[in-house]
Simulated assay, not measured.
Amino acid sequence: MLSKEKLARINELSKRAKTSGLTKQEEKEQQALRKEYLQTFRASFKNHLHSVTVVDENGNDVTPDALKESKKNKNNPMH
Rank of each mutant, 00 (worst) to 15 (best):
Q31E: 15
E69K: 01
S14T: 12
T19M: 04
R9A: 03
K35D: 11
H48G: 08
E27H: 02
P77A: 06
K46S: 14
S20G: 05
T40K: 13
L22D: 02
T23A: 04
L2G: 01
L33Y: 02
S70W: 10
A43Q: 15
T53N: 06
P64L: 12
A8H: 10
K18S: 09
L22P: 00
K72V: 03
V54S: 03
S20V: 13
N47P: 01
M1T: 08
G21I: 08
K71A: 03
A43F: 12
R16I: 02
H50A: 04
H50D: 02
L49I: 10
N73I: 03
E69Q: 10
E5A: 12
L13W: 03
E57G: 02
K6F: 07
E36K: 03
V52R: 09
T53C: 04
E26V: 10
L13K: 01
K4W: 15
R9T: 09
G59N: 10
E5N: 13
K6V: 05
N58E: 13
H79P: 08
H50N: 11
K71V: 04
M1D: 08
Y37G: 01
V54A: 11
S3G: 08
A66W: 15
R16W: 06
H48D: 14
N58Q: 13
I10R: 11
E5Q: 14
S3P: 07
Q39E: 13
T40G: 11
T23V: 05
N11A: 08
A66I: 13
K28A: 14
E57V: 07
S20N: 08
H48L: 15
Y37A: 11
L7P: 00
R16T: 02
K74N: 05
H79R: 00
Q31W: 01
R34C: 06
N11E: 04
R16V: 00
V55H: 01
K74G: 06
P64Q: 07
S14R: 14
V52W: 15
D65M: 09
N73D: 12
R9S: 05
K28I: 11
H79E: 13
E69S: 02
K46D: 15
T53P: 02
K74M: 04
V62K: 14
K18Q: 07
M78W: 09
T19G: 01
L38V: 14
K35I: 05
A8K: 12
D61Y: 05
K74Q: 12
Y37P: 04
S14I: 05
L33G: 01
N75R: 07
L49T: 09
L33E: 01
K15Y: 14
T40L: 13
